[in-house]
Amino acid sequence: MALGAVSCHGSPQSTGDQGMKRWIILAAALAVGMAGCSKKTTAGLPAPMPGQKSTAEAMLAYSHSMSVDLPIADIPTRIDAIRKACTSSSHGACNLLNVDQSSTGGSITVRIVPEGVQPLAEMAGAGGKVASRMTTAEDISDAVHETQRDRDQLDAYAKRLDDIVARKDLSVTDLIAVSKEQAAVAEKRRVLDNAATDQHHRLDTNLLRISFNDPHARASRREFGDIGPAMVDSALDGTADALAALAEGLPYLILAFPLAWLWWLAWRKVTRRWRK
């Protein structure tokens, strides 16, 4: 009886423990499932395309390119939105370099500060599919150092010319020659200054080119576009075959004509005898 009492009192507690374990296992499974769903959703999103900044140690000029699949009807509006964002400097200093549109897509190229690359990339890919993206860097440190070296040498040469002009014993002819040389040096310095400005501009900004395409429009255009060349090729092949067949049969036609004429004369002669 005592054992039976103990068994009766212990059964509800055991059942409650098992139920609690089931709820814990179920909650853990739901948590794992939600974590898995969250990871899958995040993995499907396109990776960011941040701008890159050059440093004094590594003089790198960065450029980015990305391709976005978008319905053809949305491409002009998207390009115009990016153009306005660039020209209004909504995301930092930006220069519009090129805009191109066609029946199957379009593209826009800008040069913008590194902080503005990511916002424009997000604007381009919104509602579409980012098909590809690429970031490249060009090391222009040699070009920068060479330009600076040429400027220093030119400055030293210009200073020597200034010292010559300052001489009181300089003849008029020599003064004219030195003045011409100073003008040539000033023009070379202007070219070098422009080159240095362009180089530093490339280091301080990023080049961004965004291409838009409608894969469905491109596929249909390719299918219909192949009809014309295929018809021309078929017509040319058929004409060539016909000419080849005619060339092969021409000797037989030349021989067959006199034979047919002789046969016709003989047949006519025979029929005349029958009539008589």
Score class of each variant (00 low, 15 high):
1 M>G: 15
2 A>W: 11
3 L>K: 15
4 G>P: 06
6 V>R: 11
13 Q>G: 09
15 T>H: 14
16 G>Q: 12
18 Q>K: 14
18 Q>S: 15
19 G>I: 13
20 M>S: 15
21 K>E: 11
26 L>G: 14
31 A>Q: 08
31 A>V: 07
32 V>H: 01
34 M>T: 11
38 S>D: 09
38 S>T: 04
39 K>V: 05
43 A>Q: 14
46 P>N: 09
49 M>E: 08
51 G>M: 12
56 A>D: 13
58 A>T: 12
60 L>G: 07
60 L>Q: 13
61 A>I: 11
62 Y>T: 08
62 Y>E: 09
65 S>D: 09
65 S>Q: 14
67 S>C: 10
69 D>R: 11
70 L>G: 11
71 P>K: 07
71 P>H: 04
72 I>F: 01
73 A>L: 10
74 D>S: 13
78 R>G: 09
79 I>D: 03
80 D>K: 12
80 D>N: 13
81 A>C: 03
82 I>A: 02
82 I>N: 04
85 A>S: 09
85 A>F: 03
87 T>S: 08
88 S>Y: 07
92 G>D: 06
94 C>E: 05
94 C>S: 01
98 N>D: 11
99 V>Y: 07
99 V>W: 06
99 V>K: 13
102 S>Q: 10
103 S>Q: 15
106 G>V: 07
106 G>M: 12
109 T>E: 15
110 V>Q: 10
113 V>E: 05
116 G>R: 00
117 V>T: 06
120 L>S: 09
120 L>N: 05
123 M>C: 06
123 M>P: 00
124 A>L: 08
124 A>R: 03
125 G>Q: 12
127 G>M: 04
127 G>W: 03
128 G>Y: 00
131 A>Q: 14
131 A>I: 12
135 T>K: 01
135 T>P: 04
140 I>L: 06
141 S>I: 03
142 D>P: 02
143 A>W: 01
144 V>L: 02
146 E>N: 13
146 E>K: 13
149 R>L: 04
153 Q>K: 09
157 Y>W: 01
158 A>T: 10
160 R>I: 06
160 R>S: 09
161 L>R: 08
165 V>S: 07
167 R>F: 02
171 S>T: 15
174 D>H: 10
179 S>M: 09
181 E>P: 05
182 Q>D: 02
186 A>G: 03
187 E>H: 07
191 V>C: 03
192 L>K: 10
193 D>P: 10
195 A>Q: 11
197 T>V: 07
203 L>F: 04
204 D>W: 00
206 N>I: 03
207 L>Y: 11
208 L>T: 05
209 R>E: 14
213 N>Y: 07
214 D>K: 01
215 P>F: 00
217 A>E: 04
217 A>Q: 05
218 R>C: 02
218 R>S: 10
223 E>R: 15
224 F>H: 11
225 G>W: 06
228 G>Y: 15
231 M>T: 05
231 M>I: 13
231 M>Y: 08
232 V>A: 10
232 V>L: 11
237 D>S: 14
238 G>S: 08
240 A>D: 06
244 A>H: 13
245 A>C: 05
248 E>G: 05
248 E>F: 12
250 L>C: 01
250 L>T: 03
252 Y>Q: 06
253 L>P: 01
255 L>Y: 02
257 F>W: 01
260 A>M: 05
260 A>V: 00
264 W>C: 00
264 W>H: 00
265 L>Q: 00
266 A>F: 00
269 K>R: 06
270 V>S: 02
270 V>E: 02
273 R>N: 03
274 W>T: 02
276 K>G: 02
276 K>P: 03
